[in-house]
Design a protein around this nucleic acid. Structure first.
Length: 324
DNA sequence: CTCGCCACCCGCCAAC
DNA sequence: TCGTTGGCGGGTGGCG
């Protein structure tokens, strides 16, 4: 058993510093909270050519050249993302070889594109930043690029959705290594929730509303739907009602909806309601019945079934375990 | 837990 | 001809 697990964080010019810093803090924190008999994490930072890497925010990070890294000594590779992930053959070639030798290879946010270029996502399920999902799917047709999860594990390949989702992914890595208790301790220390309640919608909703101009959906009648649904969670969000509001026939509405949200209206509405319920459950004084009502489930039983479907645990159990 | 009912949603197809 | 619309029917799954 190795005394330390070496985590290699790979950066590139224009990378997002938070993609690297978030997970790095998680592992650092895990070292402080982990029990003595478990291997500690050792963090390495590398880039294709080494030296000082200027991130998108101009924060500079000192890195080693990949050529000086022996993959055999690495436990987990994290490839960070950036606003635009340019071509980087040196990095991709190294990654292609190294991924076979390490235990886990992870893509944070748009770092997934570099994994895709190295062929690591072929035939696998993956996530990336919500705005890049379609492009990743186009770049790597054999992958199953998903929209909903914050992070996703498929064999040795881990991917995370948003930028801050890299923290969630790192927490999941810590949980896999050190167990749930350790991961929870780290999460509490970092003041983030162990498991984020909803899908990606919670991060992207505001930005999505801004970026969705009338181009994507005809007449832009879908544009206001987002905030309207959030504001009317306890109201009637049935397909007929939504279609009426959007001014389309049901059949047409459902088609547009799915093209935009990558999931059906009922699925999306339920995700929004679960998200709202989770936020409310974090408040210990909120009763289950009241939570079910305000988040739009109508009654406790319906909310319970929705939680069981999604998380495999009841709302009460979910609150105890994840929102303590 | 079961079961009948119905909302949902997706393939199909005709009509712009 | 191609893309979009929207009505219809039926299988599926959630709800009471």
């Amino acid at each position: 058993v190795k005394r330390t697990r070496r985590i290699l964080i790979i950066l590139h010019p224009g990378a997002l510093a938070l993609d690297a810093a978030g997970p790095a803090e998680v592992f650092g924190s895990a070292n402080r909270f982990g029990s003595g008999d478990l291997p500690r994490y050792e963090l390495l930072f590398a880039s294709a050519e080494g030296g000082s890497i200027r991130t998108a925010s101009n924060l500079r990070v000192e890195t080693d050249a990949l050529s000086t890294i022996d993959p055999e000594t690495i436990d987990t590779i994290l490839v960070v993302g950036g606003i635009e992930v340019g071509r980087n053959p040196l990095l991709v070639d190294w990654l292609k070889q190294a991924a076979r030798l390490v235990r886990r290879t992870c893509g944070i946010c748009t770092g997934a594109f570099l994994l895709a270029e190295a062929g690591l996502l072929d035939g696998r399920r993956a996530v990336t930043h919500w705005s890049e999902v379609e492009r990743l799917q186009a770049v790597c047709p054999s992958a199953r690029v998903e929209l909903d999860p914050i992070y996703l594990v498929d064999g040795p390949i881990w991917t995370s959705a948003g930028v801050t989702a890299g923290i969630d992914l790192a927490l999941a890595l810590v949980q896999a290594d050190h167990g749930r208790e350790a991961a929870l301790a780290v999460a509490r220390n970092l003041v983030v929730f162990m498991q984020r309640p909803g899908g990606q919608a919670q991060f992207s909703r505001v930005l999505a509303a801004q970026s969705q101009s009338g181009r994507l959906d005809p007449q832009g009648r879908m544009t206001e739907l987002d905030s309207w649904m959030s504001d009317n969670l306890s109201g009637d969000l049935s397909v007929p009602r939504l279609a009426e509001r959007a001014g389309m026939a049901e059949r047409t509405f459902v088609r547009h909806f799915i093209r935009r949200y990558k999931r059906s209206p009922a699925e999306h509405v339920e995700a929004l309601r679960i998200e709202a319920a989770c936020a409310r459950l974090a408040d210990r004084s909120a009763s289950l019945k009241e939570t079910a009502h305000v988040s739009g489930f109508g009654n406790e039983e319906r909310m319970r079934r929705a939680f069981l479907r999604r998380f495999g645990v009841s709302p009460g159990t979910y609150r105890e375990r994840f929102l303590a």
